[in-house]
Simulated assay, not measured.
Amino acid sequence: MKKERLNVKNKKVVFSEAWKVEVLQDNHFNPKLSANEVLLKKRYTLISPGTELACLSGNESWFSMPTVPGYSAVSEIIETGIDVKDFNVGDVVFHYGTHSEYEVAKVDGVFLKVPDGIDLTWVPFVRMATVAMTSIRVSNIELGDMVMVTGLGLIGNMASQLAALQGASVIGIDLSQQRLEIARECGVEHVLAGNADVKEKVRGITTDRGVSTLIEATGVPSVSLDHVSSVGKYGEVILLGSPRGACEANVTDLLNRIHLNDLGCISFKGAHEWRYPLMPDVFVKHSLVRNSRIVFKLMQQKKIKIEPLISHILLPDEAPSAYEGLRNKKDEYSGVLYKWQ
């Protein structure tokens, strides 16, 4: 006879209104599981700075408030539905989880057991790496290419590391000296401050040929326009960061760089995470599940560096200060994890 679960207290981070973060507690959390669902207790969740701050601003139409945000989690299964066969109580799993102590989740999609030998604080970064991996998947990056990445936050840093694994020499650009130092620690070959002479420095590194691929990871629309002149002939611009905010510009020069052979014949490509399907399919090579498994393998082999990206491990009660830091102290706050146990 199945033992009845007692009510649990479920602490959660809530965006209650624009720029207002609260930590609330549901004292009567006692969900009923469907046949293919599990009840999870979180170990760690990771803040996605770009997405979550955009949601917290109130400017994302798809995100309504009050809502529990969340992006990526590592959790322990504490109860399973009657049809769950491949997972057991006690398994530790990676999934796209919210910032709450407990959560009910289906066991399909990106819901994977954590392989042996991986630090649990690294696991939520799998999603950041798979987001970044989309830029590599859609690109033409080959062994020996020069690649420039604008924006060295979590996503841009990961894209830089993955482009290097693809065989490229990478130039990472950011305004933050701290992010530049983290990129160096993660093995990015060239790191440049995004100041007035950065284009000259890129020309010097590439011996006037320009880069073959520009991965734009900031999401600031003007950055693509500012740096497209550093892309060499028949090169490409990969839009990895989701563009946000207004930008007024005369786009004729940009269109000519795309259109005219003597100005480069440059291609622009979108690299949103959901470009690829969730599950593996015999007719599609890439999927989010496959990408996640590849990232786990890279972590096991120590081919990507995660530790330098972790700036803070905080308790959920510290959530308001976490978002304040990510918003206003970008040199100090980057990879912020909530520790739930």
Rank of each mutant, 00 (worst) to 15 (best):
G58Y: 04
V131L: 11
A54G: 12
R43N: 10
L46F: 03
V107Y: 12
G81A: 10
D86M: 08
S16A: 11
H95A: 07
V38N: 04
L120T: 01
K12D: 01
A132C: 10
G90Q: 11
L33E: 09
L39S: 06
P69Q: 02
N27L: 13
K9G: 10
P69E: 00
A18G: 07
K41R: 15
N36G: 07
T134S: 12
E17Q: 13
D86K: 12
T45W: 00
V131N: 06
T121M: 13
I82D: 14
V68L: 00
K9V: 13
D26R: 03
V14A: 02
E37I: 05
H95N: 13
V110K: 05
G97L: 05
F63M: 12
N30S: 14
V38T: 07
Y96G: 07
M133L: 14
R43F: 08
E103K: 01
H95V: 05
A105K: 15
S16G: 08
G90F: 10
T98R: 11
W122N: 07
V23G: 01
N10Q: 12
T134A: 09
V107F: 13
P69N: 04
D86H: 13
D86G: 14
E17D: 14
L120W: 13
E76P: 09
A73C: 12
V74R: 06
S48T: 09
K41D: 02
D119I: 03
S100G: 10
S72T: 03
V74N: 06
V104F: 10
T51K: 04
L112R: 04
H95K: 05
V13C: 00
S100M: 01
P69K: 00
F29G: 06
A54P: 02
L40V: 06
K12Q: 15
E17K: 14
